[in-house]
């Protein structure tokens, strides 16, 4: 499943597709206010954009674009961003997750809530991306997921 795919057609098409998949993921996350989508679906597209290189390109390249530590790191950052957005209204006397309570000069409460929704969607997208990438990496036995390095000989074998 992992590693360089034998067919050059698949490799080239995969490599060309990846940036567009990532862009589409970002679009889905950012466009949730006006159309179908949101953090969840967008995060899935981002994760697929990171997984496709692992399945088609050479491991050296694929794991350089998205190293295995990206999954847990980005997932945790997304969750942290969500919690920060959730707690921020408490500091100004609002309720938990009540973004409208934050007063920003020259901005209506509805606008603040709009931005709060955007931040939450981004956070969810990052968390979903990280979680799915992490699951894929541990399932396919990618090395040093938990900061644990395997001997080089074993690593080569696993990567093939």
């Amino acid at each position: 499943m992992l590693g360089t795919y034998p067919s050059v057609v698949v490799r080239v098409v995969g490599a060309i597709l990846v940036p567009f998949m990532l862009l589409f993921g970002v679009y889905i996350i950012a466009h949730g206010h006006y159309g179908p989508g949101g953090g969840f679906a967008g995060g899935v597209f981002l994760a697929v954009g990171a997984i496709l290189p692992r399945m088609t390109l050479s491991p050296e390249l694929a794991y350089r674009i998205f190293p295995t530590w990206v999954g847990p790191l980005v997932g945790g950052l997304g969750m942290m961003l969500f919690l920060l957005v959730a707690v921020a209204p408490l500091l100004v006397g609002g309720a938990f997750l009540d973004y409208g309570a934050i007063e920003v000069a020259g901005m209506a409460a509805s606008r603040v809530r709009y931005l709060g929704i955007l931040l939450v969607e981004i956070a969810v997208g990052l968390a979903v991306f990280g979680a799915l990438l992490l699951i894929f990496d541990v399932l396919t036995d990618a090395e040093d997921v938990a900061g644990e390095l395997t001997p080089a000989a074993n690593r080569e074998e696993v990567r093939r």
């Binding site: 949730g32 206010h33 006006y34 159309g35 179908p36 949101g38 953090g39 969500f82 919690l83 959730a86 938990f96 997750l97 973004y99 409208g100 509805s110 606008r111 809530r113 709009y114 709060g116 929704i117 939450v120 969607e121 969810v124």
Partner: peptide, 22 residues
């Protein structure tokens, strides 16, 4: 009116019912 978000699903998920999403 509340959130300037035309897509009700998004405003529900990320604002009105954001604890569920959390």
């Amino acid at each position: 009116e509340d959130t300037e978000t035309p897509n009700v699903v998004t405003s529900l998920l990320a604002d009105y019912r954001s604890q569920d999403t959390l």
